[in-house]
Design a protein around this nucleic acid. Sequence first.
DNA 1: TGAATGATCACG
DNA 2: GTGATCATTCAT
Length: 210
Amino acid sequence: MTEFFEKKKLLLCSDFFDRSTKVVARDLIGKTLVREVNGVRVSGKVVETEAYVGVRDLACHASRGKTPRNEVMFGPAGYWYVYLIYGFYHCLNIVTEGVGSGSAVLIRAVEPLDGIVFMQKNRQREVLGDLSSGPGKLCQAFGVTRQLNGASACALASECFFEEAEHVPKKSILSTKRIGVEYAGAWKDKPLRFCMKDSPFVSKSKLVLR
DNA sequence: TGAATGATCACG
DNA sequence: GTGATCATTCAT
């Protein structure tokens, strides 16, 4: 029972996500991503995100209109948008802003906290820095698939959600252009990627992994 | 640098 | 139906 109250207290609700996508992407840095599967807690500290700011953003799936794949993005904030990429990996996004905006934040990397053995097994990798340091890796580590697409992240019963965590000062958050969106014309260089400064757990880290 | 691998979507 | 494309990862 105490666990339940604890979860309610920390759970990020739709008010958090129903704001400017860019602000949500920045504010998610440092928060805890949690998945509860069969009573087991898997979690990580969010260290890298990207904002996809809706129909006008040429890098955003929503820019080519609503399709069966992206329709969740056009719904209310606080729901998961999960899709398969390159036939191998999944990408985990949380829908932001109001109905019809077509915007979401891509969770690109987390620092493993709980359920590390579960992640190592899923990833077939031991090294902590290689478990969830990229959008595809993270989904593999957490066992996230399209099964989660369209689910709420804001309900007490949610199996995947965010928790409030220790405040991260703005000066330790870096913003850069997004990765892998070279096709997006004027939008390819916009500073819509956010990451925790000096974290070895961000994607494409060239630092030595421990 | 390129191969892996399959859903998705714009075509016709 | 067909074919190009892809918000990636890993091994070479």
